[in-house]
Nucleic acid binder design. Structure first.
Length: 556
DNA sequence: GCCGTTTTCGGCCCGACTGTTTTCAGTCG
């Protein structure tokens, strides 16, 4: 697979941190950070460019263009390898903890000899951080929390990353001459947003040996002392090996649902089952799609709806929360819109950042007007495809939106999201969100808790209170489909469905390539049992236009 | 390490927030 700009960016970011730890010139480190940012923002794949072309990019000079070429060829660059050699591996783990930066880690290393998360936790518990200059009791307490979160998530993986690893393994096994039948199962089949292993159900042809088959696929799966792991990300892989093909349905059933779900079914019904549908039928329970088999309220949900009414990717007709080079996106508005059209969508919503989001080049009012002009021009060319004039407005600390009313009222729709100051007490966070929800210009509540899976918990909100407020004010709840977010969380979908909430499955894409991330939003939407009639962007162009108009007129 | 020049080296850094300070450093988005 060719190396993406994002991967190059990550390597430069790591290089910047390692320089900060090992080198005294902070400006050199800063240069790498700037380069990481520039590379990430750039709209075309850098691996296809020559050194001379690379050097012309802002923030990239002779040295860094050379390193990009090295990365394109080898996956790394010499200086990074040298720095990695120099740095205790535990420090690199510490760098992954949000809230701890390279400067603090360097101090901990130099002043207290701390070189790992375990060592840091122990130092905190021994109350040793309070004596270090720049640290205090509060910092120590918050570090303890950060490390606990880190340990809880250490050996876990995002679904999206695991899926691409899983598909590599499947590619090798599906058509292999020794394999009779194979399917993925377990957490992956349930589409958990975060997983800790990949599981397969496999039936080999007579006399064939699994390890022999896997040994041919070293580029995707490796045998280690504690079992199989994917080669690239070291995700544990487990095989349920079947002996008889007539056990297939039973074992697929047993390995997919969690214990609580399986407890809903009689043991007898598994035996000699032809299919999973068969098993549910014998139990007098409606068919439950694999995603929902969590032993929560799935039976209740399915009593009222049909499995085919649950949202599918093919149901989506538009894509409404995206960024462009008007703020912090990598592709131009035109590139984004054309790509969306090319996906077969009927409409595209542009939601660049609002003015307060300075870090993301949020748009001042004059820039908003420029964008509107370009949208009008593009819409004249692209009809019947339509670009909607949206904005991702920051919800300010007070709960207010980020423009005056005379601008707000001119948007087709507004996604209101919290981006900064997320360490709030629940009570304050609720008040802040409620104020934004009650704003008549708020169409969609963006990523409700601002969580980043495996990186930081979201801020605490009273989900029921917020959902009820959205229902009362006709505010759509976003299912942010970025695999790191998947926010609002799927556990709340059935409650929201019961309140007649509309959802919008939004990729929050900052480049053309991630628009298709809506798929991951669909995965969790299915998990929560959301039906297609509750998803805003299944609407046709005419329907959503009408919806936006009526929302603005207050006649929904 | 990059950039922009008074072309050979000095300056580089948006702003809010937090927690540590007693005027600022670190981190984040």
């Amino acid at each position: 697979m060719p190396i993406t700009n994002r991967q190059i960016s990550k390597l430069f970011k790591l290089g910047a941190s390692l320089l900060e730890l090992n080198d005294d010139n902070q400006f050199k480190s800063r240069a790498y950070e700037n380069a990481a940012f520039a590379v990430r923002q750039f709209g075309e794949p850098l691996v296809n460019m020559t050194d001379a072309e690379l050097e012309k990019l802002p923030g990239i000079g002779k040295t860094l263009s050379n390193k990009i070429t090295q990365i394109a060829n080898t996956g790394s660059y010499e200086e990074l390898d040298r720095l990695l050699e120099l740095t205790p591996p535990g420090l690199i783990e510490l760098l992954r903890i949000k809230g701890l930066g390279a400067k603090k880690i360097k101090t901990l290393w130099m002043e207290a000899g701390i070189t790992s998360p375990e060592g840091l936790l122990q130092a905190c518990l021994d109350n040793r951080l309070v004596d270090i200059k720049g640290f205090g009791k509060k910092t120590q307490d918050s570090i303890i929390e950060l490390i606990h979160f880190f340990f809880e998530n250490k050996n876990r993986f995002l679904y999206a990353e695991a899926e691409s690893e899983m598909n590599e393994v499947l590619k090798h096994l599906e058509n292999h001459e020794s394999v009779e039948k194979i399917a993925y199962t377990g957490e992956m089949r349930r589409k958990m947003p975060v997983i800790d292993k990949i599981e397969f159900l496999i039936l080999l042809k007579k006399g064939k040996n699994l390890e022999d088959v896997l040994k041919e696929a070293e580029e995707s799966i490796t045998v280690s002392e504690d079992g199989y792991k994917t080669t690239y990300m070291d995700i544990p892989v487990f095989f349920w090996e079947l002996m008889k093909s007539e056990d297939w349905a039973e074992q697929l059933m047993r390995t997919t649902g969690n214990e609580k779900h399986l407890a809903l079914l009689s043991k007898d019904s598994f035996q000699k089952a032809q299919s999973e549908e068969d098993i549910y039928a014998k139990n007098n329970i409606p068919y439950i799609i694999p995603e929902m088999r969590e032993g929560r309220d799935e039976v209740e949900i399915m009593q009222g709806i049909k499995a085919e009414d649950i949202i599918k990717y093919e149901d989506l007709k538009g894509c409404v929360h995206n960024h462009s080079t008007y703020s912090d996106g990598a592709n131009t508005l035109q590139e984004m819109a054309l790509y969306c059209k090319g996906m077969g969508m009927q409409y595209f919503g542009i939601c660049d950042h609002s003015q307060t989001a300075v870090y993301a080049s949020g748009m001042k009012p004059y820039k908003v007007h420029e964008q509107w002009k370009e949208i009008d021009k593009l819409n004249a060319q692209l009809a019947p495809f339509k670009i909607f004039k949206g904005i991702e407005s920051d919800i300010l600390g007070t709960g207010a939106l980020d423009y005056e009313e005379d601008i707000l009222k001119q948007f087709d729709f507004v996604v209101a999201s919290v981006h900064s100051n997320i360490k709030m007490k629940e009570e304050d966070a609720n008040k802040r969100l409620l104020k934004a929800i009650e704003n008549p210009y708020t169409t969609i509540l963006g990523h409700m808790t601002a969580r980043l899976l495996l990186q930081r918990p979201g801020f605490p909100v009273d989900h029921k209170l917020i959902i009820d407020a959205c229902a009362a004010n006709n505010v759509v709840i976003e299912i942010n489909a970025d695999p790191h977010r998947l926010d609002m969380d799927w556990h709340w979908y059935s409650y929201a469905m019961s309140k007649n909430i509309m959802f919008s499955i939004n990729p929050d894409s900052h480049e053309t390539g991630t628009m298709a991330n809506m798929y991951f939003g669909v995965c969790v939407a299915r998990k929560g049992g959301i039906t297609n009639n509750r998803v805003l962007n299944t609407f046709t162009l005419e329907q959503i236009e009408d919806y936006f108009n009526r929302k603005k007129a207050g006649t929904l």
